[in-house]
Nucleic acid binder design. Structure first.
Lengths: 241, 241, 241, 241
DNA sequence: CATGAATGAGTATTCATTCAT
DNA sequence: AATGAATGAATACTCATTCAT
């Protein structure tokens, strides 16, 4: 004769799992997966060592369930937002919004992000592959779709590979997020995300170069560009030995 | 009574340390610092467990000395190259070169890079701060100086924060390097670095947007694209060994 | 306010204890006492872990009550049968019957027998002493009495120690029972108990040696043998329920 | 550069393994395999916990190597002795010798015997099968061969299954050995092995029954019994046949 | 009485480090 | 300096037992 009805029990289990996962996220983020002990997690969760095994098969299982619990919702939000039918002119707004969401996603899940950064490279192939598919890759695909649409609409340059461009955009944010949120070097100047996002969107859309002044009578420098095709550039490569 | 003269001995010691560090890099990269054992390193280095302690204080000490040995040279090369007085027109070339060097740096030190990614976040503050200073930050500063100079010369937009822009540029590459070299999801499309670099430089300089007024009398440059297509470029790839 | 009368309740308790003990016997026999868990027993008994502690003080207590429940009845049956005043000539039949009962006892309680074999040697002195007294020793005594009587009647040789002989007889069966029922080596020839019992009784009564001069005028006893052939012997089997 | 020559090292390893196995035998015999801890064994062997793992893969591995080390030699001795071409007349002597060896084997390896009794039934099929083959079964086969030979020579009754008889003989000893050496109930009468062996051989050869026609001119032997304490009995044994 | 989640003591095994040779 | 056996602290996981419901 169960003390609780099945659904009530299920809710309790869910809650307990969350409690333990949250503790695991904190502890793993601080000490790293391998250096964190089950006792650490148990203490942080306010339960006994043994209890953890009532909710997770083993230590690894904690790791496996970390991102699903915490990143599912934000990722879906981003995806929904980007996929939302926007007005053709809103490219800048869409990017702004996407950037904002990426930033929020990482900031709000700083700890899990740190865990994942340190553990994913060490996971066995199967698990790693699943993570990579789950977490960042389909975000790229969503963005890629957006870029393609803009190219088709003649808004974005057609000479750029949309897949690469789709990875460049979040990559621009990555350096900041990585350093400021994941690595956190103690005494370092922090940049404001508003500024970062503004700059990122600007550069992504228009580049760092001053508009050539659109001199109507002066030929723009296609040849300059032509000269600097990767081909030629490479000849100048200075190899590092 | 030493069998060797002091300098000769010192050379031998240096060599042995290198040998052990190289083994440590490989082993740590494969299994992660925490899961790698001293025996693993010893076996890979072809020495006995105990011998390692004649050259390094403890396991952690191996980690501490990893990057100094391996990244010193390449970083200095990059810095020198970027700082080298270039011709004013060569902005594109400089970026191209810088990008190429960043890529080479990571690819050639893939293993150490992976170790660092997985261990830096777990280091204690002091060590981590030193790493961050040593490794990536002053690379940013160098780039920042370059961008400031270009802004002063009226080549780069003045409305963008040069510090942020300096971080954006390598960040664009980071997403690719991270995924393709560090995380290595098993079955995934790999992008060619020629293509990536080309796109990165393009976006960084001019953005993804089609120039708004696009010199009226000049045809859009699909052919330009054709000429400088990465496809062809690749044939000329110069591999850095 | 009890829902049941005291005796009814007691009956229920008894039943539940039986149910749990039966499960314990099975589980202990399969995995061994130490490797079996309370959960295993609970699952096999169809009750919850906690419930077991309403009927037994602790895990050890299960072990203590195992044989009392299961072997009491059969042992009493054997004892009664052997002690039963038999006709003086029936020595062979008595032994046959005793052997049959010993075999049945072990076969029917194979699992408990296996548990006891593996746990008795590890019990503390007090418990072990009790078991040894309870279970096999007084069976020996009963047999010893029978042998003494036969010796007094001039049927059995007087030069043999009746106590030793009383142990020899069941011992002859033991090797078979031990190997075939307790140890059960996977692919091994199994002997039929009819044959075993026949041989055991024969050897015990007359030995393996060919009668030295075989009183010439008396026919050798193939018919005796014929009469007591396993086939027929089985008809006389008294099964212990 | 090894500190020791290869053979010297191998000798040391062998010695150390023996030392640990001896300790394991004692500890396992006392507490049982499952209840004994590696620390127990280590303490008994005078080494550290970790050292055990330099010589044995795991706890189970200790068990696996127990009997090989201790029983190999005695078993071979028994086998050799039994198989030894004896004079045709010595059937009684052969059995006496075999019985004596079985008794010695168990007594001298009491502890291991106890371990095996408690652990064999719990081993997985494969391991158990190997043990059964290794240890007792081929002893039976040797004895079976002997019995067959005696039957062929007309010394032993041909109506008995030699395989069964071969198991009956050591079985007769088993009850005593089991109780007196393995189970050791605290306060219990112990039988002398000389007596036991005498009785066992007597019963096995001639049975407990008084020879039916009892050579008419010879008085029944109550005095024979007096005379035939095992000591003396053995001296007269040769008179058989 | 029944339940099964919670507990935490107990243990096999690993591995960084030491040190006798 | 080199070796690798010895060490023992550290830790994931199990499971008998308790107890709130």
């Amino acid at each position: 004769m169960p003390r609780l009805t099945a659904p009530a029990r299920r809710a309790l289990v869910r809650e307990r799992r969350q409690q333990i996962l949250a503790a695991a996220a904190t502890v793993f983020a601080e000490k790293g997966f391998d250096r964190a002990t089950i006792s650490d997690v148990a203490r942080a969760a306010g339960v006994s060592d043994g209890s953890i095994y009532n909710y997770f098969r083993d230590k690894q299982d904690l790791l496996v369930h970390l991102p699903r619990q915490f990143m599912q919702t934000p990722i879906e939000a981003v995806q929904a937002a980007i996929a939302k039918p926007g007005t053709p002119l809103a490219a800048e707004n869409v990017l702004q919004f996407a950037a904002q969401n990426i930033v929020n996603l990482i900031i709000q899940n700083r700890e899990i992000a740190r865990v994942l950064f340190t553990t994913i490279p060490l996971m066995d192939d199967k698990l790693r592959a699943e993570y990579m598919r789950q977490v960042p890759l389909y975000a790229f695909e969503t963005l890629e779709g957006f870029i393609k649409a803009q190219q088709a609409a003649g808004v974005f340059r057609a000479d750029l590979d949309p897949a690469i461009a789709a990875r460049i955009f979040p990559g621009m944010l990555l350096a900041f997020l990585l350093i400021q949120e994941i690595l956190q070097p103690p005494d370092m100047h922090r940049f404001e995300y508003d500024q970062i996002i503004y700059t990122v969107v600007q550069v992504f859309l228009r580049g760092v170069t001053v508009p050539e002044k659109a001199a109507p009578d002066i030929a723009p420098k296609p040849h300059t560009k032509a000269k600097s095709t990767p081909r030629q550039a490479r000849k100048q490569e200075i190899t590092v030995e």
